[in-house]
């Protein structure tokens, strides 16, 4: 889905998920590793503020990813 949106619309798609090898397999070009499978952009083990902070950090990283020129599939780990 990520690949075909990018291909059809011609716009960058950043995928946030936890199992990086699957994103590499299906062809996502910009990849941000998530927190965990059932909550990729949140951390229920932290308090509400911490949960939101984790989400904010991942989304800021995703926004950096869509502004970054890449030549091949790229994992944004920080």
């Amino acid at each position: 889905m990520a690949r075909e949106i990018e291909n059809t619309a011609g716009i960058p798609v950043v995928q946030i998920a936890t199992i990086v090898p699957i994103m590499l397999t299906v062809g996502a070009n910009r990849i941000v590793p998530g927190v965990a499978i059932p909550h990729p952009v949140g951390d229920p083990s932290r308090d509400a503020e911490g949960d939101r902070a984790v989400r904010r950090e991942l989304l800021e990283r995703a926004l950096r990813a869509i502004q970054t020129p890449v030549e091949e599939q790229t994992i944004f780990t920080s």
Partner: peptide, 26 residues
Amino acid sequence: HAERFGQEIGERLKKDGVDAVILTST
């Protein structure tokens, strides 16, 4: 099916001038 979803969503986003997508998966 996943590819079709992507193509249809991509068409719509292109038409509506969207610049980028954040896609989350579990």
